[in-house]
Amino acid sequence: MKVAHPRCARGSSPLLAGVALLAGAVASPSSAQSPEPPPLIAQGCIGCHGQAGAGGGTVPKIAGYNRDVFIAQWKAFRDKQRPATIMDRVATGYTDAEVALLADYFSKLK
């Protein structure tokens, strides 16, 4: 499903906005039910990484990020093995279980 770019959602019709919202949520196996909402802990990420992880400016897109790579890079940030301006400090604050949840969620976004 084509995602309306979050910035284009401003001023768009309610229908397009609805499409963007659905695409931003985790898809559920049953098409008859509404999609599962994103995990609440992912909300802290959107302040910088944007709605549905689309990124912007100098902040990378994390929507569609490979799940295993996400987890490995998070560990590298946490262990100060990967150059970072911000993420090494963010990475210290989440548990492994939370990181796995975030990795699952963002990997499924377009």
């Binding site: 302040g47 400016g57 301006t85």
Partner: peptide, 17 residues
């Protein structure tokens, strides 16, 4: 330099949210 630019993106992202 990057943090100043990240701040600009933060502003755009959070006001969108």
């Amino acid at each position: 330099r990057l943090e100043a630019l990240h701040a600009d993106t933060w502003y755009a992202s959070i006001t969108q949210d």
